[in-house]
Design a binder for these strands. Structure first.
Length: 234
DNA sequence: GACCAGGCACATC
DNA sequence: GATGTGCATGGT
């Protein structure tokens, strides 16, 4: 019986062989990653890309300018072609709540670190994570996405795909919460941000392509690694 | 038209 | 403490 470490590594290798490097996070700068992490909450990434493109087009992908824009939001409702943040991030859905969350994060980022990624990066993970979780609108997944993908900190990001795939493989219990799920990876894998980065990206790739909630999963590269008891209704 | 997508906060029981 | 609900667009 392979150890949990071996099992996790086997799954990683299988996914890496099947899909190759994912080159995550798909963003041009750490700040863009941070913004994307908030905008992608419960939202398809393709829609987030449109919102980010809008922000870029308005030259707002900058902490101070974006914060100002959030403060000056909202534009009048209705037909107005407002360039307010609300209109710009509209394609990402939940635009009212996300504008508030962006604003909360940006206030924190500017107050604590002057909007300086390099400065934020210098703070230890153990300090940063609780700080981020203290921002209204930043939960565990968003915090960890920022820590790993924008700041290169060694923390494993879990999401709905991670839960779905690893419970169905019998590796996580159905009742596992975020922290328990995360511990499976962090306690059994080398503490390497590069590995955590690629592993999570591969999980999302598998989830998007093959591990939908309802349709039967066809051609999943992990098929041979599923437990016998699993009926494979991924 | 229904379902889903890289969550989170808040109200209610 | 657990569960339910609102937030909202766009692709399949």
């Amino acid at each position: 019986m392979p150890s949990l470490t071996n099992k996790l590594q086997q799954i990683y290798e299988t996914l890496y062989r099947a899909f190759g490097p994912q080159h995550w996070w798909p963003g041009d700068s750490p700040f863009e990653v941070m913004v994307g992490a908030i905008l992608t909450q419960n939202t398809n990434w393709a829609n987030v890309e449109k919102a980010i493109a809008n922000l870029k087009g308005a030259d707002l992908l900058d902490p101070a300018r974006l914060y100002q824009a959030c403060e000056n939001s909202p534009p009048p409702k209705g037909e107005g072609q407002g360039e307010g943040v609300l209109s710009l991030i509209r394609p990402a859905g939940y635009f009212n709540i996300k504008a508030k969350r962006l604003r909360n994060f940006l206030k924190f980022f500017i107050d604590e670190f002057g909007g300086d990624v390099t400065l934020m990066k210098k703070a230890p993970l153990e300090t940063l994570r609780p700080m981020l979780l203290g921002v209204n609108g930043i939960g565990p997944e968003t915090a960890d996405s920022i820590l790993l993908y924008a700041l290169d900190k060694p923390i494993f990001v879990c999401d709905a795909y991670t839960y779905r795939i690893f419970t169905r493989h019998g590796i996580a219990g159905e009742d596992a919460d975020y922290h328990q799920l995360q511990s499976i990876f962090m306690d059994n894998l080398p503490n390497d941000p590069k590995l955590f980065n690629e592993y999570h990206a591969l999980i999302v790739r598998l989830g998007k392509d093959l591990c939908r909630p309802k349709p039967r999963c066809e051609g999943c590269p992990l098929e041979s690694q599923l437990p016998q008891s699993n009926n494979y209704q991924l």
